[in-house]
């Protein structure tokens, strides 16, 4: 398993361990993709979602599940997840591009409009990207959520940017 041997998830592994949004759901706009796949005692994502889309329940070691139909893609859970393991993917951003939103706690914080290099789960640069949104209200407690625009075909792969 790449996850425990190399520290990153292969998409196939993720697909087996978490219920991912359907292509129909993706077509409707932004949605949370939860990449939490180990049973650790943790549940702040559940309380973070005011739409009741995320469920952990009892015991708290359950993996979180997301009802993608209730999820609005607001991104609050992204900032609340202590494992930084939730992403917002919008495959309906434009005809040819998608956006990926991710937590980014390094300095400097990217700014909107900036040209950046998008990386996959292994940290490899896969394509150029443009920062379209940076959200960092006090409620996010210093975990900015950065959204980048990328060619649509990389939407399942890109999960961050090369450190600035």
């Amino acid at each position: 398993m790449a996850l425990i041997n190399d520290g990153y998830l292969e998409f196939e592994e993720l697909n087996k361990l978490q219920k991912l949004p359907s292509e129909e759901r993706y077509a409707k706009g932004p949605v949370a993709v939860i990449e939490c796949v180990q049973e650790i005692p943790c549940n702040p994502c559940e309380a973070a979602c005011k739409f009741g889309a995320i469920n952990v329940g009892n015991p708290i070691t359950n993996l979180p599940t997301c009802s993608h139909d209730k999820c609005t893609g607001c991104g609050v859970c992204v900032s609340k997840c202590p494992g930084l393991a939730i992403f917002i993917v919008n495959k309906a951003y434009s005809e040819t591009t998608a956006t990926v939103g991710f937590p980014y706690e390094y300095m400097p914080t990217p700014s909107e409009g900036m040209a950046v290099s998008a990386v996959n789960r292994k940290g490899e640069v896969v394509c150029d990207a443009k920062v379209v949104k940076v959200v960092n209200p006090p409620a996010f407690d210093h975990t900015p959520v950065v959204t980048i625009e990328i060619p649509k075909e990389y939407a399942d792969e890109v999960r961050s940017i090369k450190r600035l």
Binding site: E105, Y106, M107, P108, T109
Partner: peptide, 11 residues
């Protein structure tokens, strides 16, 4: 060589 942390996202 200055090793002070001069900027930080959290602290």
């Amino acid at each position: 060589m200055c090793l002070r942390v001069d900027e930080h996202c959290i602290l």
